[in-house]
Nucleic acid binder design. Structure first.
Lengths: 119, 119
DNA sequence: ACAAAGTATAAACTATGCTCTATGCTTTTA
DNA sequence: TAAAAGCATAGAGCATAGTTTATACTTTGT
């Protein structure tokens, strides 16, 4: 599929997709049989990768961090202990953030109560 | 307390605290009895506010959004229905993000398993 | 009393993550 | 076949959230 279709399937703008491609997070390939243009083709793996990017950026990971996640998930053949530790650290980060989430949610709920009681 | 103490108690840099003060998220007051300087004094409410800021920014709320939360929590006297709706929407956002969190955590755990099995 | 440390204000600078514009080529469509 | 739409590349511009620098005044410690 070309970039337009990819954009529609993921909900990301064409600009954003190209931005991610420039960062090396995804990769499209030009059809070698077609010499007249340089149109890049993307496959379902690209969709998977973009969905992971969307998920992980919601969590607040930077694009650099997400790139590492993608590499470890899709490309890594060898297993470095420091990579493993990195991911354990990230999991811990998520757990920490979850706590902030619960606290903030509780605060917001209290704000709602306060607003309603003032009526 | 002065800004240095506030910085130590919250873990935020003096610069960041001033940045938040410029945005109107917190407010220090100069001692009127002292004419020789313009040193601002902060109280425990400021600490509370900064702790809320720290929590909420981890959740990914923008400083503008956090400012609204603070206003509704500490300053609002009247209760506007649209404010209430805003906060309900924010709570929903948090719930949505929690889902992303769980998915991303699961992905990271799988990455860890993958790395370990490759050994 | 004087150097060091603290405070205030303003402005410049930086990093991240886009978003938009310009240019030029290719493909599709009426 | 000419106009419109799509694709690629490069670079400029923008918003957010700080961080750093410069300047100047005040307070504190020795």
């Amino acid at each position: 599929m070309l970039i337009n279709e990819l954009s529609k399937k993921t909900g990301l703008s064409i600009h954003t997709i190209r931005y991610y491609e420039n960062l090396g997070m995804i990769k499209g390939l030009a059809d070698e049989k077609v010499k007249s243009n340089n149109y890049k083709h993307y496959n379902n793996n690209t969709i998977e990768r973009l969905e992971i990017i969307i998920e992980a950026r919601e969590v607040g990971f930077t694009l650099a961090e997400i790139k590492k996640i993608l590499t470890s998930w899709f490309e890594t053949t060898e297993s470095k202990p420091e990579t493993l530790e990195l991911f354990h650290a990230k999991i811990k980060e998520i757990d920490d953030k979850m706590r902030y989430f619960k606290q903030t949610k509780r605060l917001l709920e209290k704000v709602c109560e306060k607003i309603q009681n003032n009526e």
